[in-house]
């Protein structure tokens, strides 16, 4: 999405989330005949600023050649079911506002703007 390679970051995500479910961490893959065609990663976060714990999805993707066949929907449904079993009742995510493809996907699943507004600033060097 950003075009930046973050190999070590994703390796550490795989180590922390991919090996086994622990402490509310979820890493689900869509398997089609032994071939991984999509994945979703998230976790239960206690969250800050007085919010209740929520299910936080921070990565989802489906192979471009088989998009629009419902795999993303099934992945999201599966992780939501997993969050529900963990006792949370809210799903959250955050992405760049020009990422229309994934924004549209989450919108199609019923997600709306939440109560939180992301803020940022450039740090002067």
């Amino acid at each position: 999405m950003t075009g930046l390679e973050k190999r070590s970051y994703w390796r550490s995500v795989y180590r922390r989330y991919g090996d086994a479910e622990q402490a509310g961490r979820k890493f689900l893959v869509a398997d089609a005949g032994g071939r991984v065609v999509g994945f979703v990663i998230g976790e239960v976060r206690d969250w800050e600023f007085g919010s209740q714990p929520c299910g936080w999805v921070f990565a989802i993707d489906v192979r471009p050649d088989i998009r629009r066949s419902g795999i993303g929907t099934r992945l999201l449904e599966a992780i939501c079911a997993s969050f529900r079993r963990a006792g949370v009742r809210k799903l959250r995510t955050m992405l760049a506002r020009d990422n229309t493809l994934i924004l549209s996907f989450f919108r199609s699943q019923g997600m709306m703007a939440g109560l939180f507004i992301p803020l940022e600033m450039d740090l002067e060097t």
Binding site: R97, D98, T100, L103, S104, F106, R107, S108, G110, A113
Partner: peptide, 16 residues
């Protein structure tokens, strides 16, 4: 923000 919102909502999503 308004543009990002309008750009992310398809008619299919609106119908839902």
């Amino acid at each position: 923000i308004a543009k990002a919102t309008f750009s992310s909502i398809t008619l299919a999503t609106m119908l839902r």
